[in-house]
Design a protein around this nucleic acid. Structure first.
Length: 625
DNA sequence: TTTAGGG
DNA sequence: CCCTAAA
């Protein structure tokens, strides 16, 4: 099989405009999948680690996270006719990467027979995705060894919100390698294909993509920061998601537009890690370290705090300085063990990469268990504080380690994602797995609970994000959505990305309309007509915070339906027939009126007093079915 | 932000 | 109730 051909296939795969336009609902699902990929991607990126050391020699104090297995091999076998089975025995996430452009944060897939190509601009790829890979002649797609996939880490020493680019020395060390790898390809044809690929991707733009990109832009990170209550930008007023929701007409657009935020909408009693433990943190008592928190890993609580936040929404790494000493730690690298991946022979290299990445991402985003090892002994008691395990402030923590294991309900000692049970992942069946992604329940922080003295800063997995930047110009700096879920890849990687409900947003509790409410609604619609739901809301439900104008519109819709079906078919608390009659009457009237005036409406006199409506048998004429 | 409709 | 295209 000629590589070039495959590459072309990849190009075709990215030809977004060729994707048949599906019905809106279908399209939406595709979009969701893309978003999931982004989430996973972000999550992958989020397994970054940060050290608090301010000295450049900090890295020498780092400890390492080691995985059980380190077989550096991908065995690839034929599976029936067209399946390739790749076993990725280990991945490592080195501590750094080059510092040249966004690729420095791009997980790099190195294989013996597969080269990593750089040169994809940030605009094209953004951070956090596998970069293009070109195969050498020896690729012919039977045994390839994947030596490591690397994810750089972030090292910042001063507690300021910084991009990973603040990593200097250690990054430089690595730069040579990858650059060389990428650049010494002398195959023009492949290069051509590669650029063709890039261009394809460049044109791979759509409002949806832009939106996703936007949501992953710095704005997003800032929002996350705000959520955590540690972002001190111009818009510092952190408000409770719940409250935003409640005041239907009060919240600002930015919030509402935040797609991500919807995932975090939740009941007010839920709070974020830092939020609920703010007091403990500032107290400087390690013993108050939260042992079990929502969506992050809060480490140390005195003069320095490392908060590693990871969820489907993306990773955050934050850090703050407090008044006393802290446990400082750095994770140079860790490895995740064996993955089992199955792809069709016809799969492109690109899709293979994406498959691997998704697998890794899925694994990282919830399918791994983290163990804490202190002095060589595994600490199983989650409630133990660090100090109780023998870790004390100021020490280099060379005696602290972690273990990561895939699969199984998490016995997380350090919750990487969520306190919710993690969905087990069977790494040997990843490609066929239909299980829902890990349940990641991110919970909105409550502004009221936020200890603003904590001043945690966030270090997004993203370059050059600036704290004060209000303009989401960072569009181009966003972790650009991986085109991983284009049709082809979806076909190849049937990973079920269907999010569980809890993963998105918590559905509001159902609150059936009372007869009184129905009456008020009918009354208002009689007067205002249909199509002025905001007015209806203001007129009749202004104080009912839980009833949005959309709710009212929906209720009206169901009322009309209810009124038009037989009483036997109706469910729930019966609505007096009298009200239903009024519903039909108003419906008919306003339908007719709208037809006549063609949206001319306006605030004119209420229909309530309109003789036409009360008198006429508009009902029949107005109601169809 | 609101409206309108499908899910 | 949710989601979202469109206005």
């Amino acid at each position: 099989m000629v590589f070039k051909r495959k590459l072309d296939c990849v190009s075709v795969g990215f030809d977004y405009p060729n994707i048949p336009k599906a019905p809106r609902s279908c399209r939406r699902k595709v979009i969701n999948k893309r978003t999931d990929a982004m989430d996973l991607l972000a999550s992958l990126a989020g397994k970054l680690l940060e050290e608090c050391e301010s000295s450049s020699s900090a890295s020498s104090n780092a400890f390492e996270v080691n995985m059980n297995t380190h077989r550096k091999e991908i065995k690839q076998e034929d599976d029936d006719h067209d399946k390739k089975t790749c076993v990725v025995n280990s991945f490592s996430f080195p501590d750094d990467d080059d510092d040249d452009g966004v690729l420095e944060r791009t997980p790099v897939c190195e294989t013996k027979n597969v080269k990593c190509e750089e040169g994809v601009t940030e605009e094209e790829t953004g951070g956090g995705r596998f970069e293009q890979v070109e195969a050498t002649g020896g690729f012919v797609t039977d045994t390839c060894k994947l030596e490591e996939a690397t994810v750089p880490r972030t090292v910042c020493g001063d507690g300021e919100l910084k991009s990973p680019s603040c990593v200097d020395g250690s990054l430089a060390r690595r730069q040579g390698n990858h650059t060389k790898l990428g650049r010494d390809d002398d195959d023009d044809e492949k290069l051509y294909s590669y650029h063709k690929f890039s261009n394809k991707f460049k044109s791979y733009r759509s409002p949806t993509i832009r939106r996703i990109r936007k949501s992953l832009s710095s704005q997003y990170w800032k929002q996350m920061a705000k959520d955590l209550g540690h972002y001190r930008g111009a818009d510092a007023g952190v408000k409770s998601v719940y409250r935003k929701r409640k005041s239907c007409y009060g919240y600002n657009a930015a919030w509402q537009r935040e797609t991500i935020y919807k995932r975090r909408r939740s009941s007010p009693e839920r709070s974020s890690v830092v939020t609920s433990d703010g007091g403990g943190i500032s107290s400087g008592s390690v013993s108050k370290l939260p042992e079990k928190r929502d969506s992050g890993w809060l480490f140390c609580n005195s003069s320095s705090v490392i908060f590693i936040f990871s969820c489907l929404n993306g990773p955050l790494i934050s850090k703050g300085f407090f008044s006393c000493c802290a446990v400082k730690l750095s994770i140079k690298s860790f490895r995740i063990p064996e993955l089992f991946i199955e792809v069709p022979e016809t799969a492109t290299v690109g899709s293979l990469k994406r498959t691997v990445m998704e697998a890794v991402s899925v694994l990282l985003s919830g399918g791994i268990r983290v163990g804490v090892v202190v002095h060589g002994k595994k600490v199983r008691d989650d409630k133990k504080t660090l100090s109780q395990t023998g870790i004390s402030c100021g020490e280099n923590l060379t005696n602290l380690g972690f273990t990561l294991e895939p699969g199984g309900p998490s016995k997380v000692h350090v919750p990487l994602c969520s306190q919710d049970p993690l969905v087990p992942i069977d790494p040997t069946n990843l490609s066929e797995r239909s299980a829902a992604p890990p349940t990641l329940d991110t919970k909105p922080p409550q502004a009221d609970d936020v200890d603003n003295n904590n001043h945690l800063e966030l270090v997004p997995y993203q370059k050059e994000i600036t704290v004060g930047e209000e303009e989401p110009s960072s569009d181009t700096r966003a972790i650009v959505p991986l085109p991983a879920l284009e049709v082809e890849a979806l076909a190849v990687v049937p990973l079920s990305q269907k999010p569980k409900r809890t993963e998105l947003a918590q559905r509001r509790t159902r609150r059936p309309f009372s007869v009184t409410e129905v009456e008020a609604l009918v009354q208002a619609v009689e007067e205002l007509g249909t199509g002025r739901w905001r007015d209806v809301k203001l007129r009749a439900f202004e104080s009912a915070d839980h009833r949005t104008y959309v709710d009212l519109k929906d209720k009206w819709k169901t009322l009309v339906h209810t009124a038009s079906i037989s009483p036997q078919q109706r469910r729930g608390e019966p609505v007096p027939q009298e009200l239903l009659d009024r519903v039909l009457r108003a419906y008919g009237y306003w339908s007719q009126r709208q037809g006549k005036h063609q949206g001319k409406g306006g605030g004119g006199g209420g229909a309530h007093k309109d003789a036409d409506m009360n008198r006429g048998r508009v009902v029949e004429s107005g109601v169809s079915v």
